[in-house]
Write a protein that binds this DNA or RNA. Sequence first.
RNA 1: GGGCGAUUAGCUCAGUUGGUUAGAGCGCCACGUUGACAUCGUGGAGGUCACAGAUUCGAGUUCUGUAUCGCCCA
Length: 1029
Amino acid sequence: MIPIRFEHADAAAGILQQWEAAKCSHAEASSDKPPFSIVIPPPNVTGALHLGHGLNNTLQDIVVRRKRMQGFETLWMPGTDHAGIATQAVVERRLKENENQTRHDLGREALVERIWQWKDQYEQRILGQLKRMGCSCDWSRLRFTLDPICAAAVRATFFDLFGKQFIYRGKRLVNWDTFLQTAVSDDEVFNETKKGHFYHLSYPVIDPKAGEPKTIEIATTRPETMLGDTAVAVHPDPASAFDRVAEGLKEKLAEASGKEKPLIEKQIAALEKRRAAMLPSLIQLRDMAADGRHIRLPLLDREIPIVADEWAKPEMGTGCVKITPAHDPNDYEVGLRCELPMINVLNPDGTINADGGKYEGLTIPAARKAVVADLDELGLLGEVEDREIELPISDRSKTPIEPYLADQWFVAMDTLAQSAMDAVTDERVQIYPERYRKGYLDWLSEKRDWPVSRQLWWGHRIPIWSTGGLSQSDANELSSKLEKLAEQHPDQISHRIDPDGEETVAVFVCVRDEDATVEADVEALGLVQDPDVLDTWFSSALWPHSTLGWPAETAELAKFYPTSTLITSRDIITLWVARMVLMGLNNVGEVPFNEVFIHPKILDGLGETMSKSKGNGVDPNDVIDKFGPDALRFGLARLAGDTQDVRMPVQYECPACEKLIDQTKKNRSLPKLDCPACGKPFSTQWAETAEDQALPKGAVVSERFETARNFVNKLWNASRFVLMNLEGFTPQPIDVATLPIEDKWLLSRLASVTQQVSEGIDRYQYSEVARILYDFAWDEFCSFYVEIAKPRLSDPEQKQVTQNVIAHGLDQLLRLLHPIMPFVTESVWGYLGELAPSRGVPEPVEVGRFVMTSSWPVAQTEHHDVQIERQFSEFQKIVAAIRQIRASQNIKPSDTVPVAIRCDESSRELLEPMAAYFKGLASADIVAIGSDVKPFETDAHIGLADVNVDVHVDLEKFIDVEAELARLEKSVGQIAGQITAKENKLNNESFVSRAPKEIVDKERESLVMLREQYTSVTNDITRLQAKKG
RNA sequence: GGGCGAUUAGCUCAGUUGGUUAGAGCGCCACGUUGACAUCGUGGAGGUCACAGAUUCGAGUUCUGUAUCGCCCA
C-alpha cells in the first residue's frame, strides 16, 4: 500500500541514486541516436544558487528530459565559472574582515590558493543544489572554466587571435577600481548621484596681449585632476554652437505641451542673454587658440596650450573646459584629436603619483582639499557651487571608480562582431522571444574593441611574454632567436614587434600551450610573462566548445557541437551570448547553438531583483525543504512566460510555528524578528551577535509554491486511487470504438493535451505547458474521469476495460508531467510498474523501469473526437446545474436528490448509460430522462438553453422556498440585463447592416434563447410564489 | 536622452486573428470529513481591464498620447 502523501524528503534521494546508478543522464558520443545538447550557463562560484538559477536550470532540465524521452542522445553539459573579479573580491573582502590583511600581504600564490578553497566549497554547494533540484546533467563531464581542458581552449584561442592580429595592446582609459586595484568593465560600474561641488578655477594666460583676458576660467567637479591637465579647450565656432542649441530649444518649444512652454521659453531667454554676454570673449579665446597661445597651469607651473575643440560647450559652465586626457573619457578623446600629452597623476592605489608634484602620496580626497586650498591662497579659486554629481561606483568593491590610463590587451571586434551579427540576422541563431534580437544586434554593431586584461590574480594568466625598451636592432636579434625557438616548438610560438616609446620597441611573444619547457625557453631569452589575467567572459565565450574538448578533435565535439539551444537570462545576452557566437564561429567555424531562449527574471513582491545583499534572496534548498523539488520546479515553470520579469512575494518562515511572515523593506534587513503568530524570536541572514545567531534561523521562502505542492499531492493521490484499484489487472488490447463515452473522452483529451504540451515545450512556453497539464490532471482526469471510474471499477463487467484505460491514462500523464515534476512521477511509475508492467491503449506494451527513460507520448490524433468532447461537456453542464441547485438549497452532500432531465432523443441515448455517474458527481438519482420529462411537484429548475436541456431537481424533502426564490430572482435579473443589452445591439441599425451576417444571426438566436429562459424562470417564480402563498 | 517591457479581482498571473455576460490559482464567505486526496470537495462574493483620445457596427485586444513602475544602453 502506498503512503497517503508523497514524502519527497524520504523519496527524492533514493530516486536520484537509482537514476545515477543506471546512468540515466549519461550521454555517449558514440551513440547513433540523433544528438541533443545544451551547455549549462555555468553558475559562478562566488556564492550559492538562488531562485533565478533555480528557474534557469529547471527550464533547461524540462527541455533536456523531454528530448531524452523523445529518443535523442541527450547531453546536458554541467560546470561552473570562476568569475574572476567577483570571486576574488569576495575572498579579498573576507580576508580584510577576518584577518585584516590585503592580497599583497598574502602574495599571489597564497591568495589564489585561498580562492581555490573557496571555489571548492561553493562548487560543492552549487552542485548539491542542482542535483537536489533533479537537474539531469551528465555529471561525469563536469567542467570548470579554470580547469586544464578549458585552459587549453583559452590558450589556443588567444594564440589564434594573436596570430590573426585580432589581439593588440594599447593604452586606454579604463575604469580603475582603486580598492581592488584592477580595471573593471563598463558592465561592472554603476552610477550614483551624490552631493558634490562645482569649483570655478582661473588659469593665468601667459603674456596676454592688450585687450586679452589675464586668466581663463574653467569649472570642474574634480579639481585635483588639474594636476594632469594638458590643455584648456574652447569651442572652434562658438556662434554656430549657440545657434544649434537655440534651434534645438525652439523645436522643442514647438512640440511642447502648454505647461512645458514657459520653462522652455525661459531657457531660450537665458541662452540669448548668455550668448550676448559671452560670445565676444569666446571668439577671442578661440582666436588665441588658433594663435597657439598658452596658459600657465597653477601649482605645477606647467605651460599648456589653449586648444579649439567641440567638446567645449559654449552653453555650459564657463564655456571653457580643462582637458585631462589621462583621467576623463571625454578629455581622452580631445587628447587624441588635439595630440595632447596624457599625464597620469595617479598610482594604482588611488594616491597621487610623482607627476602630481608636491601632492604626491595624497589620497584623492586629501589632494582635492589641498589643491583647492592652495588655489584659494593664490586667489585663483572662484565660486564653489553645490551640485549633484553622477559618481561611477565599482559594483565589485562599492568604491568610486577612477578613469585611469593603463596598458591593456584588446580583442579587435570588427570582423568578429560582424560574424556574430550575421549569424543572428540570417537566423542560424534564433533568439526567443524575438524582441531580444535588437539589443544583441545593436550592441554588436558598435563593434567596440574588447579590453580583456584584468589586473587580477584569479583567472587565466595572459599567455604573453614581453620585453620592452629595445632598439630596433636588439629587437631584430631577439626576433631571429625566437624564430629559431619557434622551429623547435612548431605551432607553439608567435611573436610580434611593436613600438613602445618614441624610439624604442617591445617584443611580444604568445605561447600556445601551457608547456613549461617552451615557457622556460622563452623566459630564458629575457622575456617576462604579463602579470594580468583575462576577463572571465573570455573563457565563458568558449564554453560550448571548450567543454566538449576543443581544440582537440574529440568525438564529443563531433557529436554534440553545435549545441541545440541555450537557455539563459537577459542580462548577459551581450556579455555572454554574443561572445559565444563570435568565438564559436572563429574557433570551430560554426555557431555554438541554434536557438537561444531568454527567460524572465524573478523579482520579489516589491518589484525588486532578488539578492543576498538585500536579504530577499530565496535559496532553492529552502523551498525544497518546505515544498519538495517537484513543487519548486512546477512553481517556477508556471511562472516562465515570455514577459521580461515575474514577481514572487517572499516570506520568512517562522522556524517554531511555520507561519509565513511577509517580507517588507523594513523587516528584511533585521538580524532577528519576533514571530507575530507564536511570539518566538528567530534569526535572519543578518544575525551577527552570538545571541542572535543562537536563535533558530527563519528561512526565506515563497508561498507561491504552495499551489504547486498541492498539485503534487493531488497527482499522488489520484495515482494512489488508481493503484489501489488495479488488483487483478490484466493487460488486454482495446477496441476504442466500443468504449463508453467517458473513455473516448479521456483518450480524446489526452490526444489534445499531448499535442499542446509537445508544441508548448518546443516553443519554450513553459507557463502554458504547466497550466495545460495542471488543468487536465486536476479538472479532467481527477475531477471527472476518476470519479466516473469509481462505479465502473466495482462493476465486474466493466472492471477489466476500465483498469486498462485508467492505467493508460495515468501512464501518459506521468510521462507528460515527468520533465516538470521528475520525482513524484518517477515514484508513481515505480508502483505502477509493479501492478501493470505491461499497459497501453489500444495495444499494451511492456514499459521500462524508469519514466525518465521511457518514450515521450505521441499524440494519438485518431483518438481526438470533437463530437465526443461536445457531448461530454453537455454531461458536465448538467452536473454543474445539479450542484448549483444543491448548493443554493444547502442540501448536505450525504443527501441524494431525485433529478429529471428533459432533453432530445440523441442526448437521451448519450445520458442514459451515464445516469449512474450523477450519483458520484452530484449525489443525484436520475429518475427520468427524455423529451417528455415534466417538472416535479416541488421543483427547482435550470434551463441549459445552449444544449437544449432542462434540469429538474425534486425538492420535496429539501425545499427552502426563500432560498430558491432568491436564486431565481438573481437569475432573472441577470437574464433581463443580457436581454436589454442584446436588444440594444440589434436595434442599432449600423450593427445590423455592417456586422458580418453570422455575428448578427448569432446575436438574434441568442436573444431568442434568452427570452425563452426569461419566460421559463419567471414561470418558475410564479409557481413557487403560488405554492408559498 | 535612446531602446525594451509592464499596468486586468485584495495578491500572483492567463486572455489566441477585435465578436455572447473578461478567466485561473491563492486569499475571502457559506456548506461539507461519502474509502484517492482537508495539501480535499461543492457553491458564492469580488473587476470602469492605469488614464485620455482615435479607428470600428463593436476595443482588455489595434493606433496615438499621458502617467506610474521595471530593465538595458548612453
